[in-house]
């Protein structure tokens, strides 16, 4: 009974949090509710007995990914509402809703006909982390390593894109050479 109560409670909380994230025009509300929704999703892992994945869900999504989003949000004034440019809101709403429904149906269709059976049921005496490790490093070794290489490539690409002028320090640069003063000089000239 506790499982059922917990499931419905967290289902309602998750859906309402993600609805806020989609529907609000205030960036901070969206960020906060997205983070809260991610934490509530981890509750499902805990209910299913997948403690390891629950903790990983909290650490990766809430602790790292959304914190990086927040880092990006430092660049604009989060205390103001975002004014969105909507030309035809009904069309956008209808199209995106249909697309989402379609995707859910496509992925759900094969499952409905099958009887759902866990491929790797929880074994007694084997810890959660061990079970995940077993599957990850035997059956899914190649996708795991490919994903790791892909992340590495993305990381190096990001560093190269962002770090072109990292060797020159703005504070140590001569005043007339710094990009800030060039801008002001141009403004003064024009």
């Amino acid at each position: 009974m506790f499982e059922a109560i917990a499931f419905y409670l967290f289902a309602i909380l998750t859906i309402s949090m993600f609805s806020i994230a989609v529907l609000t025009s205030q960036a901070l509300y969206a960020l906060t509710s997205l983070a809260a929704g991610m934490i509530f999703i981890s509750a499902f892992f805990f209910i299913l007995g997948a403690d390891f994945l629950g903790a990983v869900q909290i650490i990766v999504y809430t602790g790292a990914v959304l914190a990086l989003y927040a880092f990006g949000m430092m660049f604009f004034d989060t205390t103001r509402d975002v004014v969105e440019k909507r030309t035809s809101p009904m069309l956008v709403f209808g199209m995106s809703g249909m697309a989402a429904l379609l995707i859910v149906l496509i992925f759900a269709a094969p499952i409905v006909s099958d009887n759902i059976a866990a491929l790797y049921p929880v074994q007694e005496g084997v810890g959660n982390a061990q079970a995940v490790g077993m599957v990850l490093f035997t059956k899914y070794l190649v996708p795991f390593e490919v994903a790791a290489v892909m992340l590495l490539v993305a990381m190096i690409g990001g560093i190269i894109l962002a770090g072109k002028k990292m060797d020159t320090s703005l504070t140590l640069l001569d005043e007339d050479k710094s990009p800030l003063s060039v801008e002001t000089n141009e403004k003064a000239a024009s």
């Binding site: 983070a35 403690d51 390891f52 909290i58 650490i59 809430t62 602790g63 810890g127 959660n128």
Partner: peptide, 18 residues
């Protein structure tokens, strides 16, 4: 006594960031 205690503590302390 969940069997991922340390991971859980690290994760929740990471949320303290918010």
């Amino acid at each position: 006594d969940i069997n991922v205690g340390i991971l859980y503590i690290l994760g929740v302390m990471a949320i303290g960031l918010y």
